[in-house]
Nucleic acid binder design. Structure first.
Length: 110
DNA sequence: TAGGTGACGGTCC
DNA sequence: AGGACCGCCACCT
């Protein structure tokens, strides 16, 4: 299996773009989902990728495992998510309701 | 080849 | 609810 870092980056970005509005995915969930097709990858790597090339995708739908928003973009992400109907639990997203993974329905927890 | 770095994740207080 | 600590891992220098 030939592994190219650039290819992994594209896969991450593609997966982020597939996240339905009003739904979120954690860095770890993304890494785990891609772990099926890439032997390399981790939540850390996904975070680094988002920091560098996340500008062209719905980055606000990617949050930490605990539903926390990306450092430096908390206000921005919060506003964007709120506009999509995401309800916050303090300063965190309620992962139990909004967590999404490939293959799941696009309907939210409601 | 070795060392530093970071949009993480879970635990402990 | 908030903050500090350690473990993890691939990428870059």
């Amino acid at each position: 299996m030939v592994y190219d870092p650039q290819e992994y980056v594209e896969a991450v970005l593609a997966l982020v773009e597939s996240i339905p509005p009003g739904r979120v995915m954690s860095y770890g969930a993304i890494a785990d989902a891609l772990h099926d097709r890439f032997e390399r990858g981790s939540a850390r790597r996904v975070g680094t990728i988002m920091a560098q090339w996340g500008g062209g995708v719905p980055w606000h739908r990617v949050v930490s495992g605990g539903g926390r928003l990306p450092p430096g973009h908390e206000l921005r992400a919060r506003a964007l998510l709120a506009a999509e109907g995401v309800v916050f639990r303090g300063s965190r997203v309620r992962m139990a309701e909004y967590a999404w993974h490939p293959g799941d329905t696009d309907a939210g927890g409601g």
